[in-house]
């Protein structure tokens, strides 16, 4: 589904990604771990098409198509979803209104009419139940005055509404207490299918107890330095990242 080939990317002429290779197939869950500043969030932003990052070499392909010329919204229409580490506030725009706009814009891109209001309501009801979200929450302004946990849960609610092909969860576990973590993880697990894929970016092994990855990759200095199964996450939890850094140095 997703194929990243020798990807190099910079911001303000500073190279952050230095040759990433990664293949994600439908039905798989990949975890990307690594110390601060290793390029995890940059990788997520580059896949989503954020303009401030310049791809200097290599490519990102979705279903065999190079995404290079696609604007972020076009990538979204093709099924890429990014759960933000720091979701932004949009005062005066309710969660419901935001979702309605997002869904209808995607439909428009596919040549479909707006989603009928009754279908929209049904979808909202279904997905908010799945994520144990109080529907009053949905009339509040997007992320304005939300707690850290509420923001993250709202990201996963949006993911459930948009039903992406590839979901990238960037540090979704940060700021979540144990109950919220369980709810979010349950949501992600329920949305998983043989047709979609998830990339979980995280610092800690904690989230991976709930969302069990098929593959774990360690990112360091803009490169994947080690890949393995879910047991790699346990190893990292025990030993930290230093041993990998040393291994790299040698």
């Amino acid at each position: 589904m997703l194929k990243i080939n020798d990807l190099h990317a910079s911001v303000d002429d500073k190279e952050i990604l230095r040759g990433i290779n990664l293949t994600v197939n439908a039905g798989e869950v990949h975890a990307i771990m690594g110390p601060n500043g290793s390029g995890k969030s940059t990788l997520a932003s580059v896949i989503a098409g954020k303009e401030e990052f310049e791809v200097t070499k290599g490519s990102v392909e979705l279903d065999g198509e190079d995404l290079e010329d696609d604007a972020p919204e076009e990538r979204a229409h093709k099924g890429i979803f990014l759960s933000f580490q720091y979701p932004v506030e949009i005062p005066g725009v309710s969660v419901t209104n935001f979702m309605k706009t997002a869904i209808n814009e995607s439909r428009k891109a596919r040549g479909l009419e707006d989603m009928p209001a009754n279908e929209m309501l049904k979808l909202i009801r279904e997905k908010s139940e799945l994520l144990e979200i109080d529907r009053k929450f949905l009339s509040r302004s997007l992320n304005e005055g939300f707690s850290g946990g509420e923001k993250k849960r709202n990201e996963i609610f949006q993911m459930a509404m948009l039903e992406p092909k590839l979901a990238i969860l960037d540090e979704t576990d940060s700021g979540l207490d144990i109950d919220a973590l369980r709810i979010v993880a349950n949501g992600v697990n329920k949305l998983k299918s043989k047709d979609n894929a998830v990339i979980v970016i995280t610092h800690y092994q904690r989230l991976l107890e709930h969302i069990v990855p098929d593959f774990v990759h360690v990112l360091h200095n803009g490169k994947i330095v080690k890949s393995g199964g879910k047991e790699l996450a346990h190893e990292l939890e025990e030993k930290g990242y230093d041993w990998l850094k040393q291994e790299q140095a040698v």
Binding site: A48, G49, K50, E51, A71, P72, E73, R75, A76, H77, F81, L82, F84, P87, V88, I90, P91, G92, V93, N97, F98, T101, A102, I103, E105, S106, A109, S141, Q158, L162
Partner: peptide, 21 residues
């Protein structure tokens, strides 16, 4: 960018933000 990532193009995103404001 947040709006773009959700599939909302820039003009529409501005309209949404302005209307909210």
């Amino acid at each position: 960018f947040y709006c773009n990532q959700r599939g909302i193009e820039t003009e529409k995103a501005i309209a949404l933000i302005v209307n909210g404001f």
